[in-house]
Design a protein around this nucleic acid. Structure first.
Lengths: 208, 208
DNA sequence: TTTTCCGTAAGGGTTTTCCCTGAGTCAGTT
DNA sequence: AACTGACTCAGGGAAAACCCTTACGGAAAA
C-alpha cells in the first residue's frame, strides 16, 4: 500500500523537483495531486484525502498557515509537512500551531524530506536542522508589538513620515513619535531600513 | 557521451530537485557538481569545465549575474541557463547581458528546463514562457545607479547612517549626502523604507 | 482595589536627514 | 580641445527623526 502525497507550492519547478525526489525514494509513495496556493491545498485535501501533504509556507492568495488551518477542518487526519524557504520564527510557530507535523527548509538537504516523511507517517513530529532551536529558543523576537505599533510600523515600512502617519490615523505627531521610539526599543532595531526588513519578514508589509 | 552539468542554487532542496529532474530526462546528462552561491559557481566552472551550468539568479554573497560574468572569464565555452524565482526585467537583462543563453523561471513547468537544455546545447538561446515579452518590452527600470551609488545604497539598506557610510568608504559626509540625493532622484524613491525594498528586490542587500 | 499595560499627548533638546547651489578632478568620448 | 559623466567635497538652511521625561484615561489583570 503506497503513501499518497499532495504537493502544494507556487513554483511549478519546485513541485516537479519534489515529486521527482519523492519518486526516487525507497518508501513507496505516490504523488496524487499538486497545487499552487492555499486554496488549491484545501480543495485537494477535501477531494483526495491524501496521507501526506507537502505545503509551502509562503504562497500568494492564501498562505500555508491559513491553508493548514482550513485543511484540519476538512480532513483532520492528513499529515502536513511544511516546506519553507525561510526559518522565520513566526512562520514556524504559525505552521506548527496550525497543525503541521513537520517543518523543513528548502535550504536543507533532501534526506530531511525523507526523514520528515518517515516520522510523520509514524505519528511523530519532525523538525529540520536548526528548526527545533528556533522553536525552543523563542523569546528573542516574540514580536511584542501592540496593534497600534503594528499599524505604525506598517506605515513606516511604506516610507511614510511621522506627520503623514499621524494624519492617516487621526493622531498627534507626538503620539506617532512615541510609538516609533517604542517600536525601536522593543525590537532593538534603530533604523528605518532594519524596521522595513523586519516588517517584510513578518508580513507586515510587502516588498513592493 | 553524456552532457556534464553543474547546478548552482542557494537551496539544497531545489538543487536536489533539479538534479533529480535532470536524471529522469531522456537526454543523457550527468550532474558533476553543485554550488550554493556565485563564488561556488565560478570555482566549479574553472575546475570542472562543465558543458552546462544551471544558475539561480538571486543568491547570497555573489548573485547569478556577477557569477555569470566571472564564469565567462574563466571559461567562455560553458553554456549558462539562468533559473530564477522572479521575472524581474533587471534580472533577466542582467543575466542575458552577462552571457546566459537561456532564462527560465522556477514557476514554469519542468519541460521548459528540458527545452532550454536542448536549445543551449544546439547553440540556441531559449527564453521561458513570457520572458521574451519582458525582454522586448524592456526600457522602464534601467537601474541607472553607478558603482558608488550601489555601494552607498547597499549600506543605506543595511540601516547605516550617512556618517557611518562615509567612515566605511573613507569619504566625506557631504559626498555620501550627495550620493543619497542622487540615488533618490534617479530612482524617484524618497524614503529609506522604499530604498530598502528596492535594494532587496534588486539583490543589493539581503532581507536579514 | 491596586497594579500594569496600552494608547494618547506634550515640552524641549540633539542629531540626522533632506535639499539647494556651486565647484574641482579625472577618465573616457567626440 | 571640448564635453560628458562619475566622483569628490563644501556651505547653509529647512525638515524630519531621534531621544528624554512626564502624564492622564481606560481597560485588563492581579
Amino acid at each position: 500500500m503506497s503513501v499518497s502525497i499532495v504537493i502544494v507550492d507556487d513554483h511549478q519547478m519546485v513541485r516537479d523537483g519534489l515529486a521527482s525526489l519523492l519518486h526516487g525514494m525507497d518508501t513507496d509513495v505516490e504523488v496524487i495531486g499538486q497545487g499552487a496556493n492555499g486554496h488549491d491545498a484545501v480543495e485537494l485535501a477535501s477531494s483526495l484525502h491524501p496521507d501526506v501533504m507537502l505545503i509551502d509556507v509562503a504562497m500568494p492568495d492564501m498562505n500555508g498557515i491559513d491553508a493548514t488551518l482550513a485543511i484540519r477542518e476538512v480532513d483532520p487526519d492528513v499529515k502536513i509537512i511544511a516546506v519553507s524557504m525561510h526559518s522565520d520564527r513566526n512562520y514556524i510557530n504559525g505552521m506548527l500551531d496550525a497543525g503541521a507535523l513537520a517543518y523543513i527548509r528548502k535550504e536543507s538537504a533532501f534526506d530531511e524530506l525523507s526523514h520528515a516523511l518517515g516520522d510523520v507517517l509514524n505519528g511523530k513530529v519532525y523538525l529540520g536542522e536548526g528548526i527545533a532551536e528556533i522553536v525552543v529558543g523563542a523569546k528573542s523576537s516574540p514580536c511584542n508589538l501592540t496593534e497600534r505599533e503594528m499599524e505604525v510600523l506598517k506605515r513606516i515600512a511604506e516610507g511614510k513620515k511621522t506627520r503623514e502617519i499621524a494624519a492617516e490615523l487621526f493622531l498627534s505627531d507626538k503620539t506617532i513619535e512615541t510609538h516609533r521610539r517604542q517600536i525601536g526599543r522593543k525590537l532593538d532595531l534603530h533604523s528605518v531600513a532594519e524596521l522595513t526588513k523586519f516588517a517584510i519578514r513578518h508580513n507586515i508589509t510587502t516588498i513592493n
